[in-house]
Design a protein around this nucleic acid. Structure first.
Lengths: 223, 223
DNA sequence: CCCCTTTTCCGCAGATCTTTAGAATAATCG
DNA sequence: CGATTATTCTAAAGATCTGCGGAAAAGGGG
């Protein structure tokens, strides 16, 4: 009746939808959103067998959401385009907005209400004003792949050994990968137990990036 | 490694993705984006059997993307939230941006390059300035469900009979449902053959709405 | 109450997607 | 050139989704 194009156009649209229809692929996209990764790294981070990771990455490649670059014996994947990155943020926003279950899962998992999360804008103001120490508590490899300006890398696993290097009078803000990552929450609990005034960055690196802020890459890491 | 929430959070996200992973569902969402519809209307417009339409609508309902309202013996579905509508636009933008195949399909199907499509912003300026006649060429039922301000309804099927009411000196802009709808293209060809200076509105009602412009609803049609 | 319309539920056959094992490829290093 | 490592390809079992026939709700209207 409305004389729409045949199924073909909607088949094409559905290719993008299908790419987003699987939890493993969404997880991989979120990981890639933080920076380029090899298959093995992705597999390790997502706790999905390498073969399966590779298979799902091929789906994402087919949907043109990621690109692949070979270097020696390994393949590095990355988000194809900043447009995709922006879209992922909107996708997550919609999901959070529409799915009550998701909100429940997130708050139950993160459980950071008492840690006084710092918003991205508030953090930016604080960094500008000075007097705040910013700590990246992710594994060092992730820090190298891209981190907040002025952030110091102290992976959660090594945090306890570096306590004496942290001030007791300056506020510490810890962050990790993304909005569904609990590493920074754990870090802040540890810091508070050690008497440090610490808070988490709400939404982690992902939300920082999505707000359009700059991310520092280690020299040598390809742009 | 990164201590992400278990699969649960990504399972929830994937619920939205799955809803977008099927061409029929995407088509239904596009139809609903133009206004509330009953199952039967949707079935007719999308050329999908009623049973199947109903089944797919239940999926969308489960994903919380649409809502349902019963009136007498029939069910009316609609987009759950303007947020969803906005998201659909972004989804289509991403698809068009990333999928070369989609662009090919669209241009091959619409084939309106020679019809000098008018952009939404240009149309708004023209309406403001006056001297442009705006015609809605969709079936009358769709016009009633929601149309552009100042638009006159002349369904494509009846256009030939109403030619004498159309000016020969004022530019006519015709529009239909959405970016993948060819009704307005046909209407403009017909008008041009009849010596009228006509152009199509690029993206139709859908793009007009997505640009945040007002849509007029007939009295009696529930908001 | 029965009949009619519209929509939904049930269930099954066929298609598609996911996961993983095993083989193949591709690059690197002795 | 053979051994090694990282990744992809192939294939197949299992899970999930889709489309549709038949039947059941749920609301009118006579």
């Amino acid at each position: 009746m409305t004389e729409f194009a045949g199924a073909r156009i909607y088949d094409q649209l559905a290719r993008i939808g299908k790419a987003l229809a699987n939890p493993v692929r969404l997880r991989l996209l979120d990981l890639l959103d933080a920076g380029e990764r090899s298959v093995e790294e992705l597999s390790e981070c997502s706790e999905v067998p390498v073969k399966n990771t590779s298979a799902q990455l091929r789906h994402l490649l087919a949907a043109n959401l990621v690109t692949c670059r070979r270097e020696g014996t390994r393949s590095y994947y990355r988000i194809a385009d900043p447009e995709v990155s922006r879209f992922l943020g909107r996708f997550a926003d919609l999901a959070e907005h529409r799915l009550a279950d998701l909100r429940v899962e997130v708050t139950a998992y993160l459980d950071d209400a008492d840690l006084e999360p710092v918003s991205v804008t508030e953090l930016r103001d604080r960094l500008h004003a000075g007097g705040t120490m910013l700590v990246d508590v992710r594994p060092e490899a992730e820090y190298r792949a891209g981190h907040l300006p002025e952030a110091r890398s102290i992976p959660l696993a090594r945090l306890r050994d570096h306590l004496d290097e942290l001030p007791t009078d300056t506020e510490i803000v810890a962050y990790c990968a993304g909005p569904y990552c609990a590493t920074s929450t754990r870090a802040v609990r540890l810091l508070r137990d050690a008497g440090r005034p610490a808070r988490v960055l709400a939404g982690g690196l992902t939300r920082w990036r999505r707000a359009g802020n700059h991310v520092t890459r280690q020299a040598g890491t390809p742009a």
